[in-house]
């Protein structure tokens, strides 16, 4: 099953009784913005027990539009990369047995 942001916010909201639902919603969006902002200025993100986000460099290359077959220049760029932490890896893998 897939869980989206809205459902995740509802889950957090149900499991605590201090903040109203709309504050949780705003907080989750603020957290996501803060993380996006950090990566976009070249910072890494490290969340203990969960994992880390960093950027990977991609060289410029000549690609091809698979539909038209036309060659296109693809600029150098950075792409986000997530490395799961030890605890997340272990927990996820345990779920399989």
């Amino acid at each position: 099953m897939k869980v989206n942001k809205k459902e995740l916010i509802e889950k957090i909201s149900r499991n605590q009784d201090q903040l109203p639902h709309r504050d949780i919603e705003l907080a989750v969006k603020t957290i996501i913005n803060c993380m996006t902002q950090a990566l976009s200025t070249g910072d890494r993100i490290e969340i203990r027990g969960f994992g880390s986000f960093s950027l990977r460099y991609r060289r410029p290359r000549i690609g091809r539009n698979p539909k038209t077959g036309k060659t296109v220049n693809i600029n150098e760029r950075y792409v986000p990369h997530f490395k799961p932490g030890k605890n997340l890896k272990k927990r996820v893998n345990k779920g399989t047995d």
Partner: peptide
């Protein structure tokens, strides 16, 4: 937030943000 994402993933759910 991070614990819930971790728990959902370990229960076999994918999480879309």
């Amino acid at each position: 937030l991070f614990n819930d994402i971790k728990n959902l993933l370990s229960e076999g759910h994918e999480v879309k943000l």
